[in-house]
């Protein structure tokens, strides 16, 4: 799930930080800049791991800051493709199931990656999976046969792909001299697509045997 990324950056220390040791001030400055931000094609930055190398602080003409060239390692969240991770179901919609990890929640399972046969219950607004099908129409299945993807449940998923988007916000819109909020949907900068269409994947309670009828054996699924 987590990686170390080796990064290089130039940091400006303001004069009010000159009192503290430089490495502390530099770490603080780097964390301020990176923590909880998505670095394009790298992942979601959590915090600075350590400083690898730091140049001499230099004063430039025009400001009172000390500028340091820093090489450092950053802890980033970026699960690799085909990694198995445990997440929590956040919400269901007709197109996808959304998952959350508390600190990151742009994780989706598109309908195509749900186990077969599955259906969307329009009353509960939840997807469910029916391992042992008994009726022709999935929505006629008796309730105990249905395995719902309930919000809050822990779920084991495989990472299929991830996408980075670097969408620039356009110029601010002004109508008759009044600024208006831009309500258009903005894509998340980092999004993970996951799958549960495989043996062993899905809600953890499906597989740990705590539900009599729902869980199945590996052999059954494979056959």
């Amino acid at each position: 799930m987590y990686n170390l990324a080796l990064m290089k950056d130039t940091v400006a220390l303001r004069p009010n930080t000159f009192g503290s040791p430089p490495h502390i001030a530099i770490l603080e400055e780097l964390n301020k800049k990176y923590a909880n931000r998505v670095v394009h094609d790298v992942g979601l930055a959590i915090c600075v791991f350590d400083l690898v190398e730091a140049g001499e602080g230099k004063v430039r003409y025009g400001d009172g800051c000390l500028w340091y060239k820093i090489t450092f390692r950053l802890v980033v969240f970026r699960p690799f493709r085909s990694e198995i991770i445990v997440a929590q179901v956040k919400s269901n919609s007709e197109e996808a199931v959304r998952l959350t990890l508390e600190f990151f929640d742009d994780i989706y399972i598109p309908v195509a990656y749900l186990p077969h046969p599955h259906a969307f219950d329009p009353n509960d607004r939840q997807h469910f999976w029916v391992p042992d099908r008994t009726t022709e129409e999935l929505l006629d299945e008796p309730l105990p046969q249905r395995n719902y993807l309930e919000a809050g449940e822990y779920i084991r998923v495989r990472v299929e792909s991830d996408e980075f988007y670097d969408d620039e916000p356009g110029p601010p819109k002004v109508i008759e001299g009044v600024a208006v909020q831009d309500d258009t949907y903005r894509r998340p900068p980092y999004r993970i697509i996951c799958s549960i269409a495989e043996a062993g994947l899905g809600l953890i309670s499906w597989w740990d045997g705590s539900r009599g009828g729902g869980a199945m054996d590996l052999d059954e699924e494979e056959g």
Partner: peptide, 23 residues
């Protein structure tokens, strides 16, 4: 900002937990 190596090493969850708790 310059990325020298986006995946220099992998960390286990426990290591991240230790690091953050410590900080």
């Amino acid at each position: 900002m310059e990325v020298l190596n986006a995946r220099a090493a992998m960390l286990s969850n426990y290591e991240v937990l230790t690091l953050l708790s410590e900080l």
